[in-house]
Design a protein around this nucleic acid. Structure first.
Lengths: 340, 340
DNA sequence: GGGGTTAATGCAATCGATTGCAATTAGCAA
DNA sequence: TTGCTAATTGCAATCGATTGCATTAACCCC
């Protein structure tokens, strides 16, 4: 296998070796019905033996597609932070699986997105057959404009006015509602909301938070709504400052599990007991949620599954068909320690 | 900008528009010294105006390179699990940054690696200018064979006999030593070691663990060495089973922070106090380590920096130069709760 | 054996960008 | 104006794979 005269690196090499034209080899490797069964087998065996794989750049050039899908994480631009939230990793895993199953490659776009204009001109977008955006950041308008430039794309996020792209997302209103309802049922009445409100997903969760109060005619104080940055470092300093001011809440609804973990840590620091003094509910149900101390009560989003849905929708678009929006279910997961 | 007659999608289009040959346009966009300064400016402005970017597939085909680097995470093959450890995400972020700085794209290889043979034939490897392996898995031999196939590659991991690839890694022996020494200094004498021993990195850490005992002439019992799978789900069941058997240790050195978190959770479940009854030290210093409850004492690896080093070494190789192996420092980070 | 079909293969253009070499133009000195 | 050099630009081949069309071979039926 290793001592074959010269390196086989193109269809032509293989064709010469087999004594046929490169057209024939191409058809054989692509299972064209035009080709004789025996020739096909012979050539496929030969290709395998010489460890030959088609040059995707050439193939892509000819066919005008690349079998590459880009993934772009839209982060809070104020934190020039990388994604540190395991949510992103789990999502990436789900997307990677979905793409692998359909024989697509995954190109990861550089983390801090420049302007959407630059992004539109970047290789990540031009070179790919389609793009998956995870989160809408604060650029929902620009995202809609991208659609007009004939970019195949799907977005993970939440409904927002003027949207023109295909949207996949969790049931954020329902999730916010369930989290809050759970705490209300436990008798908590001063429930804080922790999250970055500029994200459409979080404002949907906030809507659910309000509805839950309304549903049982409980008052819902604006003073308990706190704008917390998404990355942990800033989150924890902000939370510490809030705790200093003795806000007097007996529960917190957080917009992510890592934020909940940071909050619990800040609470324990100053001797506040979770959940007896303050109950905390997270969001996402990242894997760690079940293993941290205390274990987290949280809103479960099936993240790997979501990744698969994103991929399926995008591939539908790439096929030239229409893909419909989807809202995936979110459910409350009660674990004994943090939230009850 | 939007109402330009037809879409400019190739050099030829742009050349026609400007009334020059496509050779000229190509040279202008690539800052060739052959081109007249005025023409260059004019053509570059035109390209920008029409939002034109070169087709990378064509360019790559011609130049025989792709400006793509693949990243492969070598996971414990027994868990057909995705990477859930934030370590991977932080590493990925570091690598992504390094690549972006040099204008390379990042291709993420599908997570559960098939055989190395298949991998060698995959697009992820063939289509890329180079490959970064994170971890050696249990395939160190196969990795060395890949080098012989003219694959530009660097590997994050630990020294191992018969290695022929460029290696970048943390100081695992030193890290294992420091973690253990810290616990010994606190007076602990029955220190358990938790980790998957088939990974070269972990066995290096184990070596450090043993040396620390030897250094102060403390006995080091084999019965306190436990083989724990890398993924959290299996890790926690295994740890629970171990605790059932009342092994009687007063400290644990873990080979990752998530494992430490899982261990702490299992300990609290049955009422064992951390760190008073059992002290725990993690490894990696993932971002969460500072925010979990209790905060983790751990061995810090500067993961984003490591990502940058991996990239630099790989690009050196791609340039045809020799890249040297590097061992990056690991230092103990003491946080008050878990390990002291 | 002639004529008509069908199956299998080859030929050559094509995708878009780069680059060695040839050709053109300009500039300048005599 | 002529001749020579240097500065620009154009021509055309090339990278590797795909595919419409032409061609060849094989086979069948009278």
């Amino acid at each position: 296998m290793s001592k074959s005269g010269k390196r086989i690196s193109s269809l032509q090499d293989l064709a010469d070796l087999a004594g046929v034209s490169r057209a024939t080899v191409s058809r054989a490797l692509n299972d064209s019905p035009l080709i004789n069964e025996k020739t096909r087998k012979r050539l496929q065996a030969l290709a395998r033996k010489h460890n030959y794989t088609v040059n995707q750049q050439a193939r892509g050039l000819r066919l005008n597609r690349s079998r590459v899908v880009s993934v772009v994480f839209m982060l809070d631009p104020r934190s020039d932070q990388h994604p540190s939230d395991p949510f992103f990793l789990e999502m990436l895993g789900g997307i990677a699986d979905g793409l692998a199953a359909h024989d697509y490659d995954l190109l990861l776009a550089p983390a801090p997105i420049p302007s959407i204009q630059e992004l539109a001109a970047s290789r990540a977008v031009r070179h790919a057959d389609g793009v998956i955006f995870v989160g809408q950041g604060e650029e929902h308008k620009a995202l809609s404009e991208l659609v007009d430039q004939d970019v195949n794309m799907v977005v993970w996020g939440s409904e927002i006015a003027g949207r023109r792209y295909t949207l996949i997302g969790g049931d954020n209103v329902g999730g916010g509602f369930a989290a809050t309802q759970h705490l209300l049922e436990l008798g908590r009445r001063r429930i804080a909301f922790f999250g970055n409100m500029r994200s459409p997903e979080n404002s949907a969760r906030y809507t659910g938070y309000q509805s839950a109060h309304v549903a049982i005619k409980a008052p819902c104080e604006m003073s308990l709504t706190f704008d917390i940055p998404a990355d942990m470092q800033h989150a924890q300093t902000t939370i510490r400052a809030i705790l200093q001011s003795q806000p007097g809440f007996d529960a917190i609804v957080c917009t992510s599990d890592v934020m909940a973990i940071a909050a619990i840590s800040a609470l324990s620091e100053i001797g506040i007991k979770v959940p007896s003094d303050v109950a905390v509910v997270g969001y996402d149900d990242i894997l760690l949620a079940g293993y941290s101390t205390p274990t987290l009560t949280t809103i479960r989003q099936n993240i790997p599954y979501a990744g698969g849905v994103l991929v399926d929708s995008l591939l539908t678009l790439i096929d030239g068909k229409k893909a419909s929006d989807r809202i995936l279910g979110s459910e409350l997961v009660v674990r004994k320690s943090s939230g009850a």
